[in-house]
Design a binder for these strands. Structure first.
Lengths: 235, 235
DNA sequence: CCAAAAGTGTTAGTAGTACACCCATGA
DNA sequence: TCATGGGTGTACTACTAACACTTTTGG
């Protein structure tokens, strides 16, 4: 068996940036690192790729081991490969971002895994280049959500249009006209109106909608420009 | 010094997909692999990341060593990490794509480096998962070029609007109305009209234009939707 | 003088934006 | 009954798409 001689192997890690939306704010999930070096400092969900493991698999496994999350939206973001990014040992890291419905997992995450949600404006000091990864992920989400319906991944199965609008406004740190917003969203034909109303946030109540999964998959690439100036987005 | 114990390091490679446009067709640069295994089979420009080297650096170095290309547009694409992708040894590969002006390098590439240009429709059998990388890079270019002026990287410093249109038509395998195309392009204010004309492709001659570099940088994120249905694009 | 490609303007339709009032209900 | 948030329609503007003729000039 031929081998590549004279090549130095390096450690390969994956780091997952997990986003959630609590109905008010976009949040990021962090844990206290469980091993040396930098044990007990705040960190993204990270781990090493095993010898016999595909990279996407590794990301899913690490995420599951550290948070119990399975089958969530997970997308490869970028490789971070500065030779000095981890002073312990040369390690390159392949970053992924995940979008989840925060309420579906909130309790499990806190009780079983001691993971904690942080406001974007309120992130503690992170290890290595994790803050840079987070920034990159945020920009990517803003970019992608302008053309693809990924933000639905952050919402529960049933949601109202005002909730959805609130989410978009949070992501783009801006406000939209509710008449235009609702027309735009409904014109995608991606939403199915339910009979039931959410009465929590108003007296009149807002109708629940669910995602039309079939159309969601079909139309994933075809979505509307939600933001006034897509120019400002950086991939 | 703490080290990460019990973690298996793997080899990390970079592979560069180099695109060029000859005025007629989009082409891809390939070389015959210079080492075992798979020596002498057609391959993308690949090499291993050195122990002390940043990933982007590695991609630039490998590209330069194999083709002499320096300072060209080079963007990270995706990590390919199937454990069996390279049967020789577990290697993950970080793919990059480059866009260059084919004529500026054509001679050098053939004479000094024995690299060859291939039509997209006419790619020979490639090693490992290089065909998959190429497909991914093509989709990415189509996606990105719909919103960002990256295709100018494929043209010489001076080019005509019909040339540019021909390029876009090639990339999107479709045709555009020349009146609308020219209006759209000129409305970006990215082009500076020259006094000189290109008389090669017509008797009347077409005016040369150059890119306004300052505006190009400023407007890189703000470009027009060139294709009729961006839906069809997959990131 | 004619073939071949360059260059240019107008109109109609569509999509986006701005804007204000009524509705339902719990307290 | 009133305060709160939900829901809807219309007019204007801007962009996009469709379309045809004139210009230049080398052979």
């Amino acid at each position: 068996m031929i081998k590549y001689l004279d090549q130095t192997p390096v450690l390969v890690a994956v780091d997952c940036i997990v986003f959630g939306f609590d109905g008010q704010d976009l949040k990021v999930l962090l844990i206290k690192r469980g091993f040396e070096s930098e044990r007990d400092r705040w960190s993204l969900m990270g781990g090493f790729v095993k010898f016999d493991e595909d990279i996407d698999q590794a990301a899913n496994r690490v995420l599951e081991q550290l948070t119990g999350l399975e089958g969530v939206y997970l997308e490869q973001l970028k490789v971070f490969g500065d030779p000095n990014r981890d002073p312990t040992e040369r390690t390159i890291s392949i970053s992924y971002f995940a979008l989840i419905d925060i309420h579906q997992y909130e309790k499990q995450l806190n009780d079983d895994y001691h993971a904690e949600w942080f406001l974007i404006k309120d992130i503690p000091q992170l290890i290595f280049d994790h803050q840079e990864m987070l920034n990159k992920a945020l920009r990517k989400i803003r970019y992608k959500a302008a053309f693809h319906p990924i933000l639905f991944e952050l919402l529960p199965e049933k949601f109202t249009i005002p909730q959805l609008q609130y989410l978009y406004e949070g992501i783009y740190d801006s406000t939209f006209d509710k008449r235009n917003f609702s027309r735009k969203i409904l014109s995608t034909k991606l939403l199915i109106k339910q009979l039931e109303k959410d009465k929590d946030s108003s007296k009149k109540g807002a109708f629940y909608y669910t995602l039309d999964k079939t159309r969601y998959i079909d139309k994933f690439q075809a979505f509307l420009n939600f933001i006034p100036n897509p120019e400002s987005l950086i991939d």
